[in-house]
């Protein structure tokens, strides 16, 4: 469990980091919190020849909570977000942090690292997809572009990011006062067997729409339009509506089977976790 040899580079600024990765090519990797990359290197499953340490780029570590939008810098740690004041509309982001690994992981792991790694149950991916976040990335030569979260996650650990691009920040442009994330895992801190997130549009006791996102049901986190249509049709914010939404979600997915959980068990978890997430969301 020791990595093969690699060359270490320390980035001085975002532009320099992007230029360097472009120059070094596909054998180069950015090192942020190292909570996924380093274990993979120790198991020799990842063998980058060059590591570009972006840990010193302070300009990427920030939380900017405004009334209409929340911007989180890519080098911000999960723990920083967990303990930050994000304003009233973004409690769900802060509360989702407790599902991420264990405290030591949260104090080192970063928002950008999690989004770029794109695990199928990653809380940041789930939040980004649920809340239609925008992911701002920097490329070589000062190039910048914005990727809609809905387009970002393509499959197993695969994103729309080019090899030479670096995530700069994630922008949540819409407050979500009635949103919740919930998960099931055998142990605290495990990757979720299934995770569910909902963001309800609630007014005077009624639901007028909402968004549903799931993790652990496929190669990447997904939105579930079938379940969202149930919310769109609207109704009183009650168990019946949530069950209908959850049933639609469970029917819409075809979860994988593995040692931890079979397909039908995962499907049942989808249903029960969506109900739980709806109830938590509406209770806010």
């Amino acid at each position: 469990m020791k990595p093969p040899p690699f060359t270490y580079h320390r980035a001085r600024d975002v532009a320099g980091a992007a230029d360097l990765v472009a120059e070094l090519g596909e054998d180069a990797k950015f090192l942020a919190g190292g909570q996924s990359l380093i274990p993979m290197m120790n198991f020799r499953l990842a063998r980058p020849e060059h590591l570009i340490d972006i840990g010193g780029l302070r300009e990427l570590s920030f939380v900017d909570a405004g009334p209409e939008a929340l911007r989180v810098g890519s080098l911000t740690t999960h723990r920083t977000v967990e303990t930050a004041d994000l304003g009233t509309g973004f409690d769900v982001v802060r509360e989702a942090m407790r599902w991420i690994g264990h405290l030591p992981i949260r104090t080192r792991g970063t928002v950008g690292g999690s989004l770029a790694h794109a695990d199928a149950t990653a809380e940041w991916c789930l939040l980004a997809v649920l809340l239609d976040a925008e992911i701002v990335v920097a490329g070589a030569g000062g190039r910048r572009r914005t990727i809609a979260a809905g387009d970002a996650f393509l499959g197993f650990y695969t994103t729309l990011l080019a090899d030479d691009e670096l995530i700069v920040e994630v922008v949540f442009g819409r407050p979500a006062p009635h949103a919740a994330v919930t998960e099931f895992a055998e142990r605290k801190g495990d990757f979720a067997v299934v995770s569910a997130a909902v963001d309800l549009d609630v007014g005077s006791g009624a639901v007028a729409g909402g968004r549903v996102a799931l993790g652990g049901v496929g190669p990447a986190v997904v939105r579930v339009p079938e379940a969202e249509r149930v919310l769109q049709a609207g109704g009183r914010a009650c168990r019946d509506l949530f069950e209908a939404c959850a049933d639609a979600a469970a029917q819409a997915v075809d979860p994988p089977a593995d040692g931890d959980a079979g397909t039908e068990y995962r499907r049942a978890l989808v249903r029960n976790l969506v109900i739980r997430a709806c109830e938590e969301a509406v209770a806010r």
């Binding site: 274990p39 142990r187 605290k188 801190g189 040692g259």
Partner: peptide
Amino acid sequence: PSAASFLDYKVPTACE
């Protein structure tokens, strides 16, 4: 063997 780390070998934590 299926487990190379505590990711797969589910030793309980203090929380469990």
